[in-house]
């Protein structure tokens, strides 16, 4: 065995010590959760009303099919948000005098919709606009709920795109223009591809947030997973369906979160390299 250097012996000692400490603290925390929580006076009641295996098994299939509604709303909202937010970002970046009204509108829009909680938008638009007395199918909460989500999210996502566009160095624009590409071609082929690529991790976080916020539409009607859980809760006088809904969300969001983290770490590595 080769003789370790002073530094290696020192590092080894530190490493061993941190392993012991992290192992001990993990054991302590698990012990506390596992032993102390059941000692709480209300534990039995909580256990039967939140973690009831029978109820979970009985309600889960129906919850799962209700979750398909969430996925659908998500799947048509996300592309709309992409298009609207990119348009807003471009409108705010324009410096042509003829497009000044567009720029002003973009600024007003982001200020307004970033400043209002999404749940309030869902209420105001979801109840307000059908209240105008629109005929069926145009009073559908699916439509106006989607509109509320799209308007709320686009305001944030537009800022992400704008930051991405600003982050492309002016020398890239100079190189493109020097080759004879016009302003529009430069934006389309040089600036936007780099801007969007750079913002993928940030966009992934909005994907996750949107997926969860689809549940806000439960307040205005659609029988999606949260509303379905609500129905079961009333029916069975038990909160376990909520836990079931949470489990379904986690099964989808955790992989996406991991993937977003992976992308972010990869980007950080590239920036350092």
């Amino acid at each position: 065995m080769p003789q370790l250097t002073r530094r290696q012996r020192h590092d080894q000692k530190i490493q061993r010590r941190s392993l012991v400490i992290s192992g001990l603290s993990l054991v302590l925390v698990v012990f506390a959760l596992y032993v102390l929580i059941p000692l709480a006076p209300g534990w039995q009641a909580v256990k039967t009303s939140f973690f009831n295996w029978d109820i979970l098994v009985r309600t889960f299939p129906k919850l799962l099919s209700a979750f398909v509604v969430d996925l659908k709303i998500f799947l048509w909202s996300a592309p709309l948000i992409f298009v609207l937010s990119l348009s807003i970002a471009l409108a705010r970046n324009t410096n042509r005098p003829s497009l000044f009204p567009l720029r002003l509108f973009g600024a007003l829009y982001t200020d307004l919709f970033r400043g209002v909680p999404v749940i309030l938008l869902v209420y105001l638009i979801g109840f307000g606009i059908p209240g105008l007395g629109l005929a069926r199918p145009y009073n559908s909460p699916y439509i106006w709920g989607t509109v509320a989500l799209v308007l709320g999210y686009s305001a944030y996502v537009a800022e992400v795109f704008r930051a991405g566009i600003d982050s492309v160095h002016s020398s890239q624009i100079a190189a493109s223009r020097s080759l004879g590409l016009s302003e529009g071609e430069t934006l389309r082929y040089v600036v936007l591809p780099q801007a969007i690529r750079r913002q993928v991790p940030a966009l992934m976080n909005f994907v996750i947030a949107l997926l969860k916020d689809v549940a806000l539409l439960s307040f205005i009607g659609p029988i999606e997973v949260l509303r379905q859980a609500n129905v079961y809760k009333s029916l069975m006088a038990n909160f376990t369906p909520y836990v079931g809904a949470a489990i379904i969300f986690l099964c989808v969001t955790i992989p996406i979160t991991r993937y977003a983290d992976y992308l972010m770490a990869k980007q950080r590595r590239q920036r350092i390299a």
């Binding site: 020398s171 890239q172 100079a174 190189a175 020097s178 080759l179 004879g180 016009s182 040089v190 591809p193």
Partner: peptide, 28 residues
């Protein structure tokens, strides 16, 4: 634009487009 395409410019810092491969940089 019609004038710039007749005049080539090469920069100190290269300014290649990082999102495109060499061939696409040239053919864009």
């Amino acid at each position: 634009d019609p004038i710039r395409r007749r005049i080539g410019l090469v920069f100190q810092s290269f300014n290649l487009f990082p999102h495109l491969d060499v061939l696409s940089n040239i053919t864009l």
